[in-house]
Amino acid sequence: MNGLTDIFVRSVFIDNMIFAYFLGMCSYLAVSKNVKTAFGLGIAVTFVLAVTVPVNYLIDKYLLREGALTWINPDFANVDLSFLSLIVFIAVIAGIVQLLEMVIEKFTPVLYQALGIFLPLIAVNCAILGCSLFMQEKNFPTVAHSFSYALGSGVGWLLAIVAFAAIRERLKYSDIPKGLQGNGIAYIITGLLGIGFMAFLGI
């Protein structure tokens, strides 16, 4: 079990989606004007990651990877469909997001009100596709590992956007040089936060 916690902690703090890989920056910069919406988007991203990454893991393991099709017929051992993985992953993500939207709307209207507006944004969030691609590259042994990784990445992303939104709320009251206002300072703050997160490197 230790491996699972390792992966979780590592993906939250050290290989943070935003601070180490800059994934999902577009929505990170756009939806961080206040803490509440930032939190909502963060939860939505975590949720979608936790669903899509394990699904993509199974698809990769049993359909796409070289030799993955042997469970149908041993003759397929040399079939390598991994060149299709990009298309399949993005299709799976778009499909699942759509599905989630419908399911949530039907069964939990409260949650839908909170997350609904974010879900369409998410299909094209680089963090989601990125997480699936990293998962494929990291070659996890079981689906539980991929889930732990997805959850960790999601929580890391959430943490980053909430921290950033909190700083941005305060920023309104600071005296920033004119040319730097807006996006300029946003990038620099993210960079500084990233340097702060590097302190976790030692764990």
Partner: peptide, 9 residues
């Protein structure tokens, strides 16, 4: 290492 990503450390 397999992951060619610029993983830290």
């Amino acid at each position: 290492h397999r992951s060619g990503t610029p993983g830290l450390g």
